[in-house]
């Protein structure tokens, strides 16, 4: 089948790729661009591991055809830290013990970022609600929710 050109911005850089239209954004990120921080688990929208930000909104890259993100702005976990400085949410995940195996972590952090960008002062229940599409089999979620709330505090003080 014929290939087509997909153009988008990825972590602040323009990117142009020749791909088959049946290629998911997840495959493009992991296989073509070698951005393996975005994780592939269920592949069918159930787990949130593959979450990326498309125009600042959390989206599932396993359900997104790469060809459909023409002209959009994509942020993956690799695009969050600036240099050696972790983003406050990343730092809070480290500090609060919110990371175990780490496989859900990139998706969790990006979902949390979208939440805090929209709602800088969420309640515990709002955090749980926002993260309810991101499964984690390791942590029981307690410290993940703690980390997001802690990050909100730090970001309010101008940490971001």
């Amino acid at each position: 089948m014929s290939k087509e050109i997909a153009r988008f911005t990825i972590n602040g850089r323009e990117c142009e790729l020749l791909i088959e239209p049946c290629t998911s954004l997840l495959e493009v990120l992991r296989d073509h661009l070698e951005l393996t921080g975005t994780k592939s688990s269920c592949g069918v929208g159930e787990c949130g591991s593959c979450t990326v930000l498309i125009d600042n909104k959390p989206q599932l890259s396993c359900l997104t055809l790469a060809i459909t993100v023409q002209g959009k702005n994509i942020v993956t976990i690799e695009g969050l830290a600036s240099g050696n400085n972790l983003h406050p949410i990343q730092q809070a995940f480290v500090d609060c013990g919110a990371v175990q195996c780490g496989f859900c972590t990139p998706g969790m952090i990006l979902t949390a970022k979208a939440l805090l960008d929209d709602n800088p002062n969420p309640s515990r229940d709002e955090v749980k609600e926002a993260l309810s599409g991101n499964l984690c089999r390791c942590t029981g979620y307690v410290k993940i929710v703690d980390a997001v709330l802690a990050a909100a505090q730090i970001m309010k003080k101008g940490g971001a």
């Binding site: 992991r30 070698e34 951005l35 393996t36 921080g37 975005t38 994780k39 592939s40 993956t76 976990i77 690799e78 969050l80 830290a81 972790l86 990343q90 730092q91 995940f93 480290v94 500090d95 013990g97 990371v99 780490g102 496989f103 972590t105 990139p106 952090i109």
Partner: peptide
């Protein structure tokens, strides 16, 4: 002590490599 895990920074930045990430 409640020290942060030493593998956490690699995991929050997407740098940590799992078997599926190796090519």
């Amino acid at each position: 002590k409640r020290l942060p895990r030493i593998d956490a920074p690699a995991k929050v930045t997407g740098e940590a490599k799992y078997t599926v990430d190796i090519k």
